[in-house]
């Protein structure tokens, strides 16, 4: 599955600066449609209104965490196939294993650089 750079991407993070950083990196990678949400609840509502080709989410947010969002997405008949990358400072083994079990497509630990983000997006889309 090749990357369609016109595909809408949803960035979920409660830290505005991180959203701005990821937005800029995605723009550099050629993505033109980037939306953002401040937590899992808002993201889920947006995902039910618009079809996203990729979700990039932080883990630690309130009220709904990225981990809960991932489980909601994978449990939803319409959304369950949406590629999901976790970008988080949570770097314990138990976090990675839990995310893997919940069906995450890839996992990036903060702080990260542009090439890591590109490599993980490429890996998700099989490029």
């Amino acid at each position: 599955m090749a990357i369609d750079l016109a595909t809408p991407v949803l960035v979920v993070d409660d830290y505005k600066t991180m959203i701005r950083i990821i937005r800029n990196l995605l723009k550099q990678l050629g993505f033109s449609e980037v939306d953002d949400a401040a937590d899992g609840t808002q993201a889920l509502e947006m995902m039910k209104r618009r079809k996203y080709g990729l979700v990039i989410s932080d883990w630690n947010m309130e009220p709904m965490t990225g981990y809960e969002l991932l489980k909601e997405v994978r449990g939803d008949d319409t959304l369950h196939r949406t590629p999901f990358i976790m970008v988080t400072a949570e770097s314990k083994t138990e976090n990675v294993i839990a995310a893997k079990k919940a069906g995450v497509n890839n996992y990036i630990v903060k702080p990260f650089n542009a090439s890591t983000l590109k490599a993980k997006i490429d890996a998700v889309f099989g490029d």
Partner: peptide, 19 residues
Amino acid sequence: DLILNGPASNDDGLAQDDI
């Protein structure tokens, strides 16, 4: 329940290669 450990300190967390 939600495995909220927060950012790792020093060598407490996994590196990207380990992940």
